[in-house]
Design a protein around this nucleic acid. Sequence first.
DNA 1: AGAATAGTGTCTTTAAGACAGTATTGA
DNA 2: TCAATACTGTCTTAAAGACACTATTCT
Lengths: 248, 248
Amino acid sequence: MEVHETYDKYDKYAHEPFAVTVDLAVLTLRSGVLHVLLVERGHEPYAGQWALPGGFVRPDESAETAALRELAEETGLGDVSNVSGLHLEQLRTYSEPGRDPRMRVVSVAFAALLPHAPEAHGGGDAVQARWLPYDAAGPLAFDHDRILAEAHDRVGAKLEYTCLATAFCPPEFTLGELQQVYETVWGTGLDRPNFRRKVLATPGFVEPVPGAARLTGGRGKPAALYRAGTATALHPPLLRPPREGHPA
Amino acid sequence: MEVHETYDKYDKYAHEPFAVTVDLAVLTLRSGVLHVLLVERGHEPYAGQWALPGGFVRPDESAETAALRELAEETGLGDVSNVSGLHLEQLRTYSEPGRDPRMRVVSVAFAALLPHAPEAHGGGDAVQARWLPYDAAGPLAFDHDRILAEAHDRVGAKLEYTCLATAFCPPEFTLGELQQVYETVWGTGLDRPNFRRKVLATPGFVEPVPGAARLTGGRGKPAALYRAGTATALHPPLLRPPREGHPA
DNA sequence: AGAATAGTGTCTTTAAGACAGTATTGA
DNA sequence: TCAATACTGTCTTAAAGACACTATTCT
């Protein structure tokens, strides 16, 4: 159990208390480029530097609830339950003493994936919030570079064996858009016919929207539209091409 | 960042503080059966019930350090750095208000895998600690059934695409023993020749111990011995056989 | 007509599933 | 000699990779 026998008469005010916070790696695709939501810090430490959005978990909240609240505040999306296809997932908890110089902070990190990305404004605070390209996003305050990198790793891995990619897409999307999610997050190119075959051969990954089509690049054949299906797992997985020096 | 602007002048003693604890799902194989380390609670709430081992994170510790300390205390292994092949991995953090009736407890859950399992004794406390078969391990105190189930899920999933299975094995093991790890955790049978082919075809999964062999069942041909290799990932993965109603 | 994008078909290659058969040991 | 376990080989099947090709739209 959590509360060890030795501590049953523990005076919970006798020690320096832990602050519990959430940090959010909010990812989206804008014009085929992976972007992350960052806030500019107004105070020391790390004043003027970019950081992941986040904040305290309030006494009546779970970390998940706090993460959703912060997400709503920082993205300016208002009620986050509006956001169709939002994916919020716990990454892991960072608890090293000294990661915040002011006090003992234990932070639960989340990855959030959004389909469309409205311009951000800094919530109720004076700080600036912006979408920045993932590749241009360092160095961040605190240990946030590491959190962001782990979020990226995790999302890339989950694309292989889950249907997570649809969380980056609007409610109706083309297979080309879905493929671009994979290519952007993985940083590799994929063969279009083979990608198509794999996605359509996985029951429940996507469902066709009958009759609907969308012109993508201004010219060319309009692409059929699909919706996210009901499946969550991919069996067998859609493996990313093995990088050189890392073959099977 | 963690500490939100609004809270920079936050009085850290003004609110009910959070207690931060770790909970450990310690898994091992004993005679081909998956076992979990449990402690019997001596106090309310849940007095007399089994629970996962765990305890407070101390002011100078990270959650990982606290988990290793608890692991050493509860398993009676002494210094845990002795344990070759130990695998410790964060699962996720449970922070729902009310999960401990006494106070606000945020718990970082870990899964730990051990190769051999010495009999447990209850650490420095009067509580009993025992290895129980995984299937006989419910119902547990607090939300520990859920944590344990998630640990099992996670380990099963990681067997597919990592070399984690060797963490359940002693330093030198047979391919039959390695296969039994998969079969036990997944609860399925595997074809021996195919398993062998897959493992040996994955560079760095296992390395042969030249000349060594061990008699396993008292009779039959002695099996060649292997050590864990240097690889950590399995590409392509070793997928568990799809269950009925859950095909590709 | 030509560029651009979407979609189809097919051959090859890889890897997994199934399973027959051989090898080496103790009782 | 038989049961028990370890190991090898091979045929079949499933799925991915690598294309060549057709289709529909805009300029």
